[in-house]
Simulated assay, not measured.
Amino acid sequence: MDAVEIDRAMRLEDRNWWHRERRALLARRLRRLGTPGRAVDLGAAGGGNTRVLVDHGWQALAVDCSEAAVDHARSRGVEAMWGDIRNLPLPSDEFDLVVAFDVLEHIDDDAAAATEINRLLRSGGTALIAVPCDMRLWSASDVALGRERRYTRDSLSMLLLDAGLTIERMWSWNVLLRPALRWRGRKAACRGLEEPSPLVNGVLGAVVWSERILPVGRLPGISLMAEARSH
């Protein structure tokens, strides 16, 4: 993306139901982690999730492979740097938390990326991971977004375990909208740059919000979330 597209994407992200609910999900996990420390947000784009970290008291660094995204994050007051997740210019064993939301599916060598996540973490540190799930949902949207793959619980588990991480919890997200995604030609709930109408934005947000209280995390969804620990 060029700087104009990055700016447009970030303005949409501030309002979009999908990003709003995912920021809320991140905030809930942070509250459960307890005392804030040092965090790095990988694939941070314009730093929306990084700002959630900062708001919850974390000393947070945004990392992205797009210079335009890094510049945009800095313009919003976020500490940010360029970096390749497969080989990051950051010290080992320095971070209490690594966030990698919708990053691993874009990396050709996702094993190297997962190993880097573990390398950055202190012993006992936490990794919060989000990926799209199930190749049966693969569509032109995945291609347009530059994804290499979608994951299953088994493939994501194997990736994280092989990297040396211990999985504390894995759950599905965007479960209730999965049927709509398949029924409407796999376009209804994809993450893109299109802005839905205020009504649609509100309805979709309400549906995903309901997953906060409904026990649907074990059912198939659109995304997989994982919380893992470094040894």
Rank of each mutant, 00 (worst) to 15 (best):
G48R: 00
G43W: 00
M81L: 15
L97R: 03
V99M: 10
L61F: 15
G83A: 14
R76W: 04
G43V: 01
E21G: 05
D93G: 13
S75F: 00
H56A: 11
L88S: 04
H56V: 07
L25K: 07
A27C: 10
N49H: 13
R38K: 13
A73C: 11
L33Q: 06
N87W: 03
F95W: 08
Q59K: 15
R32Y: 13
G57C: 15
H56F: 12
E79Q: 15
E94K: 05
L30A: 13
A62D: 10
V40E: 02
I85P: 00
G48F: 04
V98T: 00
A80T: 02
I107A: 02
G77S: 12
P89E: 06
A24E: 14
L90V: 05
A69D: 03
A24D: 06
S75L: 04
D84I: 04
R74S: 06
L33C: 08
F101C: 02
D96A: 13
D110T: 05
C65Q: 04
A114T: 03
P89W: 04
I107F: 01
S92L: 09
A114Y: 00
D93V: 11
G83L: 10
R29N: 09
R76T: 04
L26H: 03
D64P: 09
D108R: 11
L25E: 03
D93T: 09
T115S: 03
V40K: 02
A39Q: 07
H19P: 07
G47L: 07
F95N: 01
D110R: 05
E21F: 06
L53T: 07
R29H: 09
L61G: 08
A111I: 03
L25T: 12
L104P: 00
G37N: 11
A112R: 12
H19L: 13
H106N: 08
G37C: 13
T50I: 05
A68P: 06
D93Q: 15
H72S: 01
E21C: 12
L104I: 04
A112W: 08
V70N: 01
E94T: 08
H19D: 14
W58F: 13
T115K: 05
R28K: 01
D84E: 12
L33G: 05
V54I: 14
V63E: 01
R86T: 12
T35V: 10
A80S: 06
A60Q: 08
L33K: 00
R38W: 09
V98E: 00
D93A: 15
G34Y: 13
Q59S: 15
D110N: 14
H72E: 05
V52D: 00
S92T: 12
H56S: 05
L61H: 13
L42T: 02
L42G: 00
R86D: 06
P89Q: 08
G37Q: 13
A68G: 07
P89K: 10
R29F: 07
A24K: 11
G77L: 14
A113V: 01
E67R: 14
E105C: 07
V54M: 07
T115G: 07
W58H: 09
R22Q: 13
V103W: 02
L97W: 02
S66L: 11
G47H: 04
V70M: 01
P89L: 10
